[in-house]
């Protein structure tokens, strides 16, 4: 089976997780795509660590304000009912456990829930920004990532080799192959995205993965079907 990188399915799947009223922080990059796929019936509260509760979509051309930006520095809007605050208040909200979900990009994520995404020593050192506070403070930490690096190796690891952004904080990893819960030093495969199979995922991932008894096959156009239960393979 040939692997074709697919960011869209990751964003679509994560978008289905949230319920109305939940407070969500989306990181820069792949996580930002998630917003596009949130159902119109679901009314979440997006927070942005640069100081917005109730972040809205990007403004139409010509309606940008230089004083309203998102955490990536792009022009943004605020929804009615939203508010602004300073950076100390913002991170009080984050560390204080008032954010339900944070969705972050990944360089490496391991089966202990460690996440590395801010530094490749000597090469690329963007810095952690707000990611360390977000992973510490958010109720549920979701790592969003293509399953494989361009070199072909899996981003899901037994142990991260890069400097850590988060120590044992990741709860859920969503890749373009499936959904992995992190628990007790293992990945648990909760969903796999057809046409990939649990066998394919186990074979191509260098980590301990347990396929859950109620593991669900998800067809790629996001229709979740409990088509069949797969057997526990590990």
């Amino acid at each position: 089976m040939e692997y074709i990188a697919n960011k869209e399915i990751i964003a679509r799947r994560i978008a289905q997780i949230f319920k109305t009223g939940e407070v969500v922080n989306l990181g820069i990059g792949l996580p930002t795509l998630v917003e596009k796929y949130i159902s119109p019936e679901v009314n979440i509260i997006l927070m942005s660590e640069n100081g917005i509760m109730g972040l809205g979509p990007a403004p139409a051309k010509g309606f940008e304000s230089r004083d309203i930006t998102d955490s990536g520095g792009s022009a943004a809007t605020i929804r009615k009912g939203g508010c602004f605050f300073d950076s100390a208040t913002s991170f009080g909200i984050i560390r204080g456990g008032h954010v339900d979900y944070t969705v972050l990009g990944v360089l490496e994520v391991d089966q202990d829930g460690n996440l590395a995404n801010y530094k490749v020593p000597g090469k690329m050192v963007p810095g952690m920004g707000g990611a360390m506070d977000l992973t510490i403070g958010a109720r549920i930490v979701i790592a969003a990532t293509l399953h494989f690096q361009p070199t072909g190796s899996s981003r899901l690891k037994r142990h991260c080799t890069l400097p850590l952004t988060a120590h044992k904080e990741v709860n859920l990893v969503v890749t373009d192959l499936g959904v992995f819960e992190v628990q007790g030093g293992r990945f648990y495969l909760a969903e796999y995205f057809a046409p990939y199979t649990p066998e394919y995922i186990l074979e191509h991932t260098d980590a301990d993965i347990i396929v859950k008894n109620n593991c669900i096959k998800v067809v790629i156009n996001t229709q979740i079907t409990e088509e069949k239960q797969c057997q526990k393979l590990v």
Binding site: G130, M132, I136
Partner: peptide, 27 residues
């Protein structure tokens, strides 16, 4: 970490000798 930086500045201006944060533990 951004939250630590913000709080360090707040602490500097608020006369605190520092603060305790979980951010950065294990890194």
């Amino acid at each position: 970490p951004q939250g630590t930086l913000a709080e360090q500045i707040r602490a500097g201006g608020a006369g605190l000798g520092g603060f305790l944060t979980p951010t950065g533990i294990g890194t």
